[in-house]
């Protein structure tokens, strides 16, 4: 497994090297040593490689990810996996504010807690949090799924569009236009798949409640439902 040691190489070298590993690369497994809270580690990746980051990261780790799997063996600072297009990001520890913000695809797994604004403006990403999420999570979330195995903070799903929110624990308060919705069989099926993809072993789909948009704040038109 090729190794990039941030004690010895610059951030630009690290990202340039990883960004060059596109489809068909011979080096599909990488490890990053000594991240020590550095910003923008492993951003803009564009190929089916797996990067193991051995430690905690600072702002914007794994941003704009396409196809790559990025495993953070520690906690992540603000904006982790921001605007992810596809691929998977797994954080062993906690994630700071706005994890998975604006993500259009792929899977973000937080094995600890995520703090405020998790999944803000998400546009198709699936986010699975094993612990709690902070206030204003899924603010203006447009599509995709947010699964919270712990509790959710204040104003969950404020100004929500068509993202689906599943919470197992307590919800401190719902944001404007976010309501609890019936859990139908198709949601249980979807949630089972999300829990499996999110490596959640100790929860069943039946344990969760579903929240979504009341569709009173934005111009929802049923004819456009396929667009979400």
């Amino acid at each position: 497994m090729p190794t990039l040691d941030m004690a010895a190489c610059s951030l630009r070298e690290l990202n340039a090297t990883l960004q060059q590993q596109t489809a068909g690369t011979n080096d599909a497994e990488w490890e990053v040593l000594n991240p020590r809270g550095s910003h923008a580690v492993a951003v803009g990746l564009d190929g089916p490689l797996t990067v193991s980051v051995r430690g905690s990261t600072g702002y914007y780790c794994a941003g704009m990810n396409k196809e790559a799997t990025i495993l953070i063996e520690g906690s992540a600072g603000p904006g982790v996996a921001e605007n992810m297009m596809s691929g998977k990001v797994v954080i062993d520890g906690d994630a700071s504010q706005y994890a998975g913000a604006t993500g259009r695809g792929g899977t973000l797994v937080v094995k600890g807690n995520a703090s405020s604004r998790c999944g803000i403006s998400m546009k198709g990403i699936d986010i699975i949090v094993h612990g709690n999420v902070g206030h204003m999570s899924a603010f203006m979330a447009q599509s995709g799924n947010l699964v919270v195995c712990g509790d959710a903070g204040d104003a969950l799903g404020d100004s929500l569009y068509e993202a689906r929110l599943f919470v197992k624990g307590a919800v401190k308060s719902l944001g404007a236009d976010c309501i609890e919705k019936e859990m139908r069989p198709e949601h249980l099926e979807l949630l089972a798949e999300l829990l499996e993809r999110g490596e959640v072993k100790d929860a069943r789909p039946e344990d969760f409640r579903r929240f979504g948009s009341a569709r009173q704040l934005y111009n929802f038109n049923i004819d456009n439902i396929d667009a979400y």
């Binding site: 020590r36 809270g37 550095s38 905690s56 600072g58 702002y59 600072g77």
Partner: peptide, 11 residues
């Protein structure tokens, strides 16, 4: 007990 604006400050 240590405080940092970022984790970097604590490493």
């Amino acid at each position: 007990v240590a405080f940092g604006s970022e984790y970097r400050a604590l490493v």
